[in-house]
């Protein structure tokens, strides 16, 4: 390839221009060394991977970074703190019922003398675990159904969309109340029920993304290469939908924490004596005037987790949004 002679004006023009060009020169040369052709277009675009670019953008999102750090800290303390106490979450200290904070019981005790710090942190552990299971399960079901509906379209889409709409109009809370009252529930049981009620929202998002991608030229190219649908869905379209799916999965953690607390507060969530943040609020509701801290502490954790998850979700959305990719 022949190099075009550079026009004279480039050297005689604005001195600022010349400097800029001199600055740019070494980079261009370094990169074009191993580029055989198209030197004029050059390999000047950044060579950072998608993951790296996303992380760089995310890091700039102060609030999201802070929220993520706080969530990690909370999770660690939920798991570690109860180990440091000599009390289990079912242990009753008969010598100390309905006590305020003390050295032995930093958060005080409940009506029957159980240590509230241990119960709160254990409760946080259960609540968070439920929320994570809900997020994973919901995302899994929603992604499978949404991708099948979006990719295949036609009759498959019609049937699955009907299913999605059916689940969307089911009054979730009523179902949960009925199931909860009738059977009571283990943490995993509650997680499954919540996932069954929440997946349609994810399915709709994923279906939309698949509709958008399935006629893109790179998908046609895969089809032209002889790829079958499973390969196209898993290797070509799914990796391009990870961004929005991850954001939605994150936000689901917040939704699940709040839903679980609401159910437990109403007495139809996880069966006591297993503590969850919602159960703790429920157990303390009689003490709202006399000892507000017994409600405010578990309630505060619910709010804190939900807030952090939302900030984290916002940060991820900005970081993963392809329209801000150029950053």
């Amino acid at each position: 390839m022949s190099e075009q002679p550079r026009p004279e004006e480039a050297h005689t023009g604005d001195p600022g221009l010349v400097t800029a060009e001199a600055d740019a020169e070494p980079t261009t040369r370094a990169l074009s060394d191993d580029v055989i052709v198209d030197e004029r277009e050059g390999m000047t675009i950044s060579t950072r991977s998608f993951g790296r670019q996303t992380w760089d953008r995310f890091r700039r999102h102060r609030l999201a970074m802070f929220a993520a750090a706080l969530l990690v800290l909370l999770a660690i303390s939920f798991w570690v703190a109860p180990m440091l106490s000599s009390y289990g979450f079912r242990d009753i200290d008969v010598a100390a019922m309905r006590e305020g904070p003390s050295f032995r019981h930093p958060f005080g005790t409940d009506q029957i003398g159980r240590d509230l710090l241990v119960r709160t942190f254990h409760g946080g552990r259960f609540s968070l675990r439920i929320a994570l299971v809900v997020a994973l399960l919901t995302t899994f079901i929603g992604t499978v159904i949404g991708s099948l509906a979006g990719y295949f379209g036609g009759i498959v889409d019609t049937l699955l969309s009907q299913l999605i709409n059916l689940f969307l109009i089911v009054p979730a809370l009523v179902v949960l109340l009925v199931v909860g009252v009738r059977y009571g529930a283990s943490p995993n049981g509650i997680a499954v029920i919540l996932a069954l009620l929440l997946w349609p929202a994810i399915a709709r998002v994923v279906r939309g993304l698949f509709l958008q991608f399935r006629d893109q030229e790179f998908v046609l190219a895969a089809r032209a290469a002889g790829a079958r649908p499973p390969r196209i869905i898993v290797r070509h379209i799914l990796p391009n939908t990870f961004g929005p799916i991850i954001v939605n999965a994150t936000l689901l953690i917040g939704t699940a924490i709040i839903l679980e607390s609401t159910l437990s507060f109403l007495g139809v969530g996880v069966t006591p004596p297993t503590p969850t943040l919602g159960n703790l609020v429920n157990e303390a509701k009689g003490a709202i005037d006399s000892r507000p801290s017994t409600i405010l502490i578990p309630g505060g954790f619910v709010v804190l987790i939900a807030l952090c998850v939302n900030f984290l979700g916002d940060g991820l959305r900005d970081a993963l949004d392809p329209t801000t990719r150029k950053g």
Partner: peptide, 16 residues
């Protein structure tokens, strides 16, 4: 039978 596509940006999977 193969094909080269119209749009050099849309025709390559950005994640591969």
């Amino acid at each position: 039978m193969q094909m080269v596509f119209q749009d050099p940006f849309a025709s390559l999977n950005p994640r591969m």
